[in-house]
Design a protein around this nucleic acid. Structure first.
Lengths: 222, 222
DNA sequence: TTTTGCCTTACGGTTTTCCGTAAGGAGACT
DNA sequence: AGTCTCCTTACGGAAAACCGTAAGGCAAAA
């Protein structure tokens, strides 16, 4: 059984074109494309009210912000909101990101049905994903396929990103400690923060915190 | 006069599809697409030898690395190499990057003919760019259109960039002092470096050196 | 020539980061 | 129970960054 009504949320028009072609080739009859998360949500709600809901959502993770003010600014926010009203909607993430931690979180937290990395064979992978989940299988493209087996002590997690983000915002380690304490982020002691930063420095072969943040920026982590 | 033979270097298949459609709609007869810079160079050479050279190159800036080992890994390297053999080849950069400093460098250093930012209207902008440079005009898409008027570089000079660069590379202020002394860059004393960094911190409203480097990275200065 | 202003450098003190060590706590397993 | 391991936290000393002040150099202006 192939999907007959699919919603695509992707801000870039070129990629949208490619996705559209792929879905047409897969035999999808109704393909609706939007360039903003808010539009995706509205279209979804409308279809639901008209008793003709979407069967599948394909969405990017990050959307460039522009003059149009948006409620939902990321694919994650969109999914989180949709999941409340449509627990069984099939969802494919189609993103440039390939961080295993993020993928794992999306699968476990938000029950996405597929995660496809954009790349040289992005559309091929996307086709595979559509097939797989029409058969109720979870699909992860090769770059992230082992996101779920947790043999990954080398992975940087959400906490690390938080830490680096606060550093890049100019907070001292002491201030970060206070900030974490206030927001119930653990561990929050100055000592733990020092330790974690030391781990990250070793991991990224950074000489000091400045170097570390610079590397993280280059890698697109921040 | 529209182009009749165009080479496209872009690693992602979805975007390639979009570009292809756009060029077809523009009436381009011969469109050749490659997913690696090395392939682009080979195709270019071959066409040159066969006395049927490309009239236009459209290329991305960054290419994901995979199992295939490549000589040329970025669009910039590709252009640099091509410019030696084809000073008059028209070049459009089609990239997600929107750093003015980078765009300025590409225009001045490598004589690119257009810089188009990928985005919601990426393909529309790409069409405009093709039209513009077929009329021998330089085209910069809106996000980067004021990359060339230098009212933006708020009195930060080459020395500041050097300083921030070394900082981002992980050198301590002491090490930077030694480095500057060795390379006859003045001023080179630790005290002067502290002072200059302090000036930059104030200028960019940064709390500390980490914050400063993060801001400079965001602005595309590094 | 002297003065003035700007830039470079030096120095001392405070704060923050860096790094090793160690104590306390929670969970797993015997 | 006990041991073991992992994680969090604490502490202290060395290094580096941060910050104000002051001295010397140099060149343009008086």
């Amino acid at each position: 059984m192939m999907f007959s009504k699919v919603l695509v949320a992707e801000d870039m028009d070129d990629i949208n074109k490619g996705i559209y072609n792929t879905l047409v080739n897969l035999g999808v009859a109704n393909i609706h494309q939007v360039q903003y998360c808010d539009d995706a949500y509205l279209k979804f709600k409308k279809a639901l009210l008209e008793q003709d809901p979407y069967e599948l959502l394909i969405t990017d993770m990050s959307f460039k912000s522009d003059h149009r003010k948006q409620q939902l600014t990321t694919g994650e926010e969109l999914i989180k909101k949709l999941r409340v009203e449509a627990p069984h909607l099939k969802v494919i993430i189609y993103s440039i990101e390939d961080r295993l931690q993020k993928v794992r979180m999306l699968v476990n937290q938000h029950q996405i049905n597929a995660y496809v990395c954009k790349g040289r064979r992005g559309l091929v992978e996307l086709s595979k994903a559509v097939y797989a989940i029409s058969d109720n299988q979870l699909y992860l493209s090769p770059e992230v396929k082992n996101a779920l087996n947790p043999n990954n002590d080398l992975e940087i997690d959400e906490y690390d990103i938080q830490l680096l983000t606060q550093l890049a915002l100019g907070l001292s380690q002491d201030e970060i400690s206070n900030h974490f304490t206030k927001h119930n982020i653990s561990p929050s002691s100055l000592s733990s923060i020092e330790k974690r930063l030391n781990k990250l420095r070793i991991q990224f072969k950074a000489n000091n915190a400045i170097h570390l943040v610079a590397i993280a920026k280059d890698l697109g982590l921040l």
